[in-house]
Design a protein around this nucleic acid. Structure first.
Lengths: 261, 261
DNA sequence: GCAAGCCGTTTCATTTATTGAAATACGAGT
DNA sequence: ACTCGTATTTCAATAAATGAAACGGCTTGC
C-alpha cells in the first residue's frame, strides 16, 4: 500500500472490516447471517483472504455460525460488552437512576456521551407504554439537533464553532439551521438547566435533556427523556419532565464526584 | 511459525490477544486501563508490535484512551453488542419475561445458553433486594453444578458422557462428583421439569432452572432464579420458584416457536 | 445418473506487510 | 539541566499474507 499510517496493522484492520460487515448486516437485515460470498462482495477481498478472516474471528468468538452455516456476531461480543460496562462508572451509576426516572414518568430515558462531534447512545430504559421512540443504543446522532446533544453543547462552547463550521444540516422541518438561533437556545438552556428538542432530529419526537458533570466539572454526557410528540406537549416538557431530568442528572453528577459550587 | 492452522491470520489473532488483555484487565482490576508497557508484559509482544495493535484497535473503536492515556474498551464494543442483541431472538424474547419473573419473585433471574461444555450467561435481571448473587454476564460456568447447566443437561443426554469423561471437579462441599448421582438427578429433573442447584457451584447460593426449547425442540438454553441460601430454602425452590421458572420457560419456548406435543 | 455450477476450502509460489532492534522523542521527577 | 522510564518512529530482514488456481462437496437441472 501507499500512504496509510504505518502505525496501523493493515491485516488487522481488514479483519475488523469483515467483522463490521457482519455486524452491519445484522442490524439492517436482521435474522440470518452472512455467507463467505456475501463478505467477499461487501468487502471486495479475495475469497481466500476473507475466508481466513472469518475463521480467525470465529476462532476468537467474535463471530459464530448460525444454524444454516452463516456468520453472525458471537458470544465474545457479550463478554466484551460486560467487561466494558464493569469498567464504566458513568453507565453503572446512571442506570439505576434511569430506571427510576423512567418508572416515574413512564417515558423512555436515554444516556448519551460525547464522541467526537456526535452523541453516542450508551444506554436506554424503555417506556412501558406501547408507543415509544426507537433510537438504537450503540448509534450516533448530531449534537445540534438532539436534546442530549444540545445539553452537552450548552456546556461546551469549545465545540460550538466546529459544529457550525461543519454546517447545520436540517434533518426535519424543525431543525435549527441558523447559527444565531442555535447559540441563543444554548444560552437559554444554560440558564434553565435543560435542553429541549422539539422534533428537530426526528419528526414526531420531542425530548428534554440535562448535562452530566464529572468530578472535574466537565460535561461529556447527558441524560434525556424522549417520547412521541402526542404525549409530549411543550409545557409538559418544560414544567414537568425538564425539572425531573435535571434533578436526576444532578444526582448522577454528584455520584460521579461532582461538587456543586 | 510452525504448526498453526494456516487458515487463521496470525496477525489478526495477535491483535485480538491485545484486545483480550485489555478486556481481562478491566474485569479484574476495574478502574484504570492498561498502558503499552502493561500490554507488552502481558502478551510478550515486542513493544513496536503491541503499539501498532493498540493503535489499530483504537482507530477501529474497540479501544479508547482514558483520561490518563491508558487503554480501555471503546464504544465499538457497545455498538457490536447491540447489533448482537438485535439479531438474537432468544435474548429479545426472553428479556421481558425475565423482567416479569424477577419482579414477581424479587429474585435474580438468569438466561444462559449452551456453549461447548459450559453455560454462557447471556442476560440477567437483578433482584431488587440488597443481597443477591453476582455472577457475571459474559461469563461461563460448568454444566454439572449449576441450575442452568443441569436444566440443559437433563435434555441433552448426548453431552453427558463427555462431561463425565472430562471429570466432575468439586467447586464446593456440595458439588456432585459421583456420575451415578448426577445421572439420577438429571432424570429426576427431566420428570419434574426443573433443576435444582443446592450450593453446588457456589456456597451460599441456591438456584432453580428450567430448559428452553426452540422450534426444533432442541435445548440450548435455560432460565434460572438464583439467590442467597438464606432466602432460598429448598421447599421454596421446589414448591414456589421451581414451578414459576418452569411456566415462564414454557412461555418463552412457545414464543420461540416450540410446539408442545 | 451424469454433468454443470456454485461455494467453501486448501495449496503454494510470489509479494507484501509485519517484525523488532535500535534510534528518537517525550515527560515526569530530581 | 539531567535522568530515567515510556511512548513513538525508523528501516532492513524476514515471516506472514496474499490470490490464482486447484480441489472437493453439494445441489440443480437435464
Amino acid at each position: 500500500m501507499s500512504g496509510g499510517n504505518p502505525a496501523i496493522s493493515q491485516t488487522a484492520i481488514r479483519c475488523l472490516e469483515v467483522l463490521q460487515a457482519v455486524s452491519d448486516h445484522g442490524r439492517a437485515n436482521s435474522r440470518k447471517g452472512l455467507a463467505l460470498k456475501d463478505v467477499v462482495e461487501k468487502t471486495g477481498f479475495n475469497s481466500s483472504t476473507a475466508y481466513r478472516y472469518l475463521q480467525t474471528l470465529e476462532q476468537y468468538g467474535l463471530l459464530q455460525k448460525d444454524a444454516s452455516g452463516l456468520y453472525k456476531l458471537g458470544l465474545k461480543v457479550v463478554e466484551l460488552y460486560h467487561a466494558f460496562t464493569d469498567g464504566n462508572d458513568l453507565r453503572q451509576v446512571a442506570y439505576e437512576h434511569m430506571l427510576a426516572l423512567s418508572k416515574e414518568t413512564e417515558e423512555t430515558v436515554y444516556l448519551g456521551i460525547l464522541d467526537g462531534l456526535e452523541v453516542f447512545y450508551i444506554e436506554r430504559v424503555d417506556s412501558p407504554l406501547p408507543i415509544r421512540p426507537h433510537t438504537q443504543i450503540g448509534g450516533r446522532n448530531k449534537l445540534y439537533c438532539t436534546g442530549l446533544g444540545k445539553a452537552i453543547l450548552s456546556q461546551r462552547p469549545d465545540l460550538l464553532n466546529r459544529i457550525i463550521d461543519v454546517g447545520l444540516e436540517p434533518l426535519t422541518a424543525n431543525t435549527i439551521t441558523d447559527p444565531e438561533r442555535l447559540i441563543a437556545q444554548l444560552q437559554e438552556c444554560q440558564v434553565r438547566g435543560f435542553a429541549l428538542d422539539d422534533m428537530e432530529n426526528e419528526s414526531e419526537v420531542r425530548c428534554v435533556a440535562a448535562p452530566l458533570f464529572n468530578e472535574r466539572r466537565q460535561v461529556t454526557a447527558a441524560l434525556s427523556i424522549s417520547g412521541p410528540a402526542s404525549r409530549m406537549p411543550i409545557d409538559r416538557l418544560v414544567d414537568d419532565l425538564g425539572p425531573k431530568v435535571q434533578v436526576t442528572a444532578q444526582h448522577i453528577s454528584k455520584m460521579l464526584g461532582y461538587i456543586d459550587a
